[in-house]
Design a binder for these strands. Structure first.
Length: 444
DNA sequence: ATGGATGATTAGCG
DNA sequence: CGCTAATCATCCAT
């Protein structure tokens, strides 16, 4: 009979002392309360397993005895006595809270998880948070590139969250059905109303949901950390390395008349830069491209706004690439003058001095016009022209010869249709700064 | 501390 | 959609 007694005791403990489940669960405290989620899960798993096995064994072993008991001639009498006793003591159960109002804390967590896209619909096209962030800038697609890493991490969190939640729910269900079965079984030997079973289930669910809340809470925390780490870091300015700036500047000044790198060019630049940069948070290539675009946007604006200030820099970078430019242009000019545009800079035609830069410049200008119609070679040549213009204006002072304001101002570029300037050329040139700085400064 | 340089963000345009 | 222009925010040399 001790087997039976134990079951009775256990169940009695559970059913009579509503909240004592915790006590029941605390039976084997392997890790105590310190354990974080893992520890808890382990605990719960252990507990469930123990309960299952213990009661199963008990049931199996006691099955025969129980059967005998049920058939015992004194059973009805015993049952009625139990009913009577329960009637007297049962009131104590009634007092328990009936419907717990939705926990505001829990609701907050739920809302947040939903807002962050953790508990929302599966996988869809990006989390709600990312969508919201993207919506702020209008362009959803490009911004999402920026957040791809963030979203990857968020997805990870979401997956963990869902699997954990599923585990909890499964455990809860198993436990519930098990208890219900036990109670139903017991209801034949002692008085247990369906309502009591229902209450029991409610209690169990509440207990499990409180555990779930912890899961939700830590998930929220994780998301918050992720957010602060990513989105705030995103806001932080991180200067390019010197080399990266060099690369970008080189490109910029050698494509000055059309400093709009194509997608491929951007990718190329992004690659080069990220090699030299090895930036913290090693921006993905797409991210790097975004930065490159930023850089060019800023550069264009700032160059245009104050050309004088950039003149020195422009000359410097022009000189840097002057030699290759000269070669390439020479080849290109030859090629385009003779015939079809195939591999303009073969360079095999030999070195080309530029003493007669005047002619060259003119021919190139006409070339410019042609090229702008959209031939690829044209674009290529044009970039070299830009570079050469620097050299020319720097070394020969062609600006004066050509009317004063051809000097390396966006004026010419504008004629081109490239990027239009808002500042009138005269305004740029006329102040003492314009031509003067160009000549006087023999920078290195 | 401070001001300029510069990366990032955003509204608005075509 | 990509760009410009304005602006914010941060870095960095002084």
């Amino acid at each position: 009979m001790d087997e039976q007694a134990r079951i009775m005791q256990a169940l009695g403990g559970v059913s009579l002392a509503g909240h004592s489940i915790q006590g029941g669960m605390a039976l084997p405290p392997p890790h105590g309360h310190d354990g974080i989620d893992d520890g808890r899960k382990q605990d719960i798993g252990d507990i469930l397993h123990q309960i299952m096995t213990i009661t199963d064994q008990s049931l199996d072993e006691a099955q025969a005895k129980k059967h005998g008991l049920n058939c015992h001639r004194m059973k009805p009498a015993l049952f009625s006595v139990l009913c009577e006793i329960k009637e007297k003591t049962g009131l104590s159960i009634r007092g328990a809270q009936e419907e717990d109002p939705p926990d505001p804390q829990l609701m907050r967590l739920d809302n947040m998880l939903l807002a962050e896209g953790v508990s929302g619909p599966e996988k869809g096209g990006g989390s709600a948070a990312a969508a919201a962030a993207a919506a702020a800038s209008g362009g959803a697609s490009d911004n999402s590139i920026e957040h791809s890493d963030y979203r990857a991490k968020l997805t990870q969190i979401r997956q963990i969250y869902h699997t954990e939640l599923e585990k909890y729910e499964q455990a809860c269900n198993e436990f519930t059905t098990h208890v219900m079965n036990l109670l139903r079984e017991q209801s034949r030997t002692r008085p247990i109303s369906p309502k009591e079973i229902e209450r029991m289930v409610g209690i169990i669910h509440r207990k499990f949901s409180s555990i779930q809340m912890q899961l939700k809470q830590s998930t929220c925390e994780a998301v918050m950390i992720l957010r602060s780490r990513f989105l705030d870091a995103r806001r932080k300015r991180r200067n390019f390395s010197k080399q990266a700036t060099e690369i970008l500047n080189e490109y910029f000044y050698s494509h000055l008349s059309n400093p709009y790198p194509s997608e491929e060019a951007k990718e190329e630049l992004a690659k080069k830069c990220s090699i030299t940069v090895s930036q913290v948070g090693a921006a993905s290539l797409s991210q790097m491209q975004w930065l490159v675009s930023n850089w060019f946007g800023n550069k264009r604006i700032r160059y245009k706004k104050n050309i004088g200030k950039f003149q020195e820099e422009a000359n410097l970078y022009a000189a840097k690439t002057a030699v290759t430019a000269a070669h390439a242009v020479a080849a290109a000019v030859q090629n385009s003058q003779t015939n079809s545009p195939t591999t303009p800079n073969s360079g095999s035609s030999g070195s080309f001095n530029l003493p007669n830069s005047g002619d060259m410049f003119l021919s190139m200008q006409s070339l410019n016009g042609d090229s702008y119609q959209g031939a690829q070679v044209g674009a290529n040549v044009q970039s070299q022209v830009d570079t050469l213009r620097h050299v020319i204006s720097q070394t020969a002072g062609y600006s004066e010869a050509l009317g004063g304001n051809t000097m390396y101002s966006p004026h010419g570029l504008n004629a081109n249709g490239g990027w239009h300037d808002t500042t009138t050329p005269s305004a740029v040139i006329s102040p003492t700064e314009g031509p003067g700085s160009v000549h006087s400064d023999t920078s290195n």
